[in-house]
Write a protein that binds this DNA or RNA. Structure first.
Length: 282
DNA sequence: GCCCAGGGAATCG
DNA sequence: CGATTCCATGGG
C-alpha cells in the first residue's frame, strides 16, 4: 500500500522557509506559515513544516527517494558543514539567520534560465517572470504549470517573451535555448566536466557571465566550490572582511573561493541570506 | 522624477 | 586593454 504523503523528521538543518526564501530558486509560492507550494521537474509539491516533522504531498516514498531526496540535498550533513564554517566569526553570525538553509539541486535548464533573468533584477520580479513563462509556455500539470522544456521555449518569439516581462533579457534566453537545441551545449553532459571546464562552456551563452554561471553551477550542478558574487555579497564582504574598503568583484570572488574552498557555495548562501534578511546596505 | 536591482554586452577612450 | 554606458521593468 502506498501513502500520498512523505514525512521527514526535521532537524535544525532543514527549514523550508530558509531553503526557499534565500534566493536560490524562484518557482514557489507561500501558502501559509512554513507552508509552501513548489514546482519542479514538472511536478507540484506541497510542503508543510511542523515543529519536528516536514510533510510533503502528494508524494509517495518512492517518489521522494527518487526525486526530492537529491533535490533537497538530504544526503549532505549540513550540521557538519556549519560546524566548520562557524569557526569564522562572520559566518557564525550569518548562519544564525538561516540555520535551515540547504543548497538545492535544481533542474539545469530552469536554473540557468532563471539566473539569466536574475541579472539586474529583483527577486520578486524574477519569480514573477518565471511564473509568466511557465503559465504561458509550460505544460499544464496538476495544480499548476511546469517550467517549459527547451524545445518549446526556443520557438517562442522575442516579442512574446518580452510580454512575459523578461525585458532586455529575452534575446539572452533565446540564445541560450538555441545553443541547447542545436546541441552546441549539452546541459546533461556538462555534469561530467570539471568546474573550470563547465564555467567555460556556460560562458559561451550570451547573457551568461561569471555570476550567472556560478549560480547555475551551485544551484543545479552541486558545485559547492562556486562562489557567486552579486551586489549584496560584494557589499557584505567589503564590510565584514575589508573594513568597508571597495574591492573589485573578481577580487572578492577569489578571496571567497580561497577562504572557503569546497564550502564556498554554502558559505556564500548563508552570507547572501544574512545580507538580504537584514537589508544590509553600505 | 530618481535610484536601484542575485549582471553582462556593447561601446568608448 | 580598463572604464563607462546601456539595457526593460517595477518598487521604494
Amino acid at each position: 500500500m502506498t501513502t500520498n504523503k512523505y514525512i521527514l523528521k526535521k532537524d535544525s538543518s532543514f527549514d523550508i522557509e530558509h531553503i526557499l526564501e534565500c534566493g536560490q530558486c524562484f518557482n514557489f509560492e507561500k501558502l501559509g506559515e512554513k507552508y509552501y507550494k513548489i514546482t519542479a521537474f514538472a511536478k507540484v509539491l506541497y510542503i508543510k513544516q511542523y515543529e519536528k516533522e516536514v510533510h510533503f504531498f502528494p508524494c509517495t516514498t518512492e517518489e521522494f527517494k527518487k526525486i526530492w531526496t537529491h533535490y533537497f540535498d538530504l544526503d549532505t550533513d549540513y550540521n557538519e558543514l556549519k560546524e566548520i564554517l562557524r569557526k569564522d566569526d562572520v559566518l557564525r553570525e550569518a548562519i544564525a539567520f538561516g540555520e535551515g538553509i540547504r543548497i538545492l539541486n535544481q533542474d539545469h535548464f530552469e536554473c540557468l534560465i532563471s539566473f539569466i533573468i536574475s541579472q539586474n533584477n529583483r527577486i520578486p520580479m524574477i519569480k514573477s517572470v518565471v511564473k509568466n513563462i511557465s503559465e504561458n509556455y509550460g505544460k499544464k500539470i496538476i495544480d499548476g504549470y511546469a517550467f517549459p522544456d527547451v524545445e518549446t521555449l526556443s520557438k517562442v518569439s522575442d516579442e512574446d517573451l518580452r510580454a512575459c516581462k523578461t525585458g532586455f533579457r529575452s534575446k539572452y534566453i533565446l540564445d541560450c535555448c538555441n545553443k541547447i537545441v542545436t546541441n552546441e551545449i549539452n546541459l546533461k553532459e556538462l555534469e561530467e566536466l570539471s568546474s573550470e571546464e563547465m564555467m567555460k562552456e556556460l560562458l559561451k551563452i550570451k547573457g551568461v557571465g561569471v555570476k550567472v554561471a556560478n549560480c547555475t553551477m551551485l544551484f543545479s550542478y552541486g558545485r559547492g566550490d562556486s562562489f557567486p558574487v552579486d551586489v549584496w555579497i560584494k557589499r557584505a564582504m567589503e564590510h565584514f572582511y575589508f573594513n568597508d574598503e571597495e574591492k573589485p568583484k573578481d577580487y572578492i570572488q577569489s578571496f571567497g573561493e580561497e577562504k572557503f574552498g569546497d564550502l564556498s557555495g554554502i558559505a556564500q548562501q548563508y552570507l547572501f541570506n544574512y545580507a538580504i534578511k537584514t537589508n544590509f546596505k553600505k
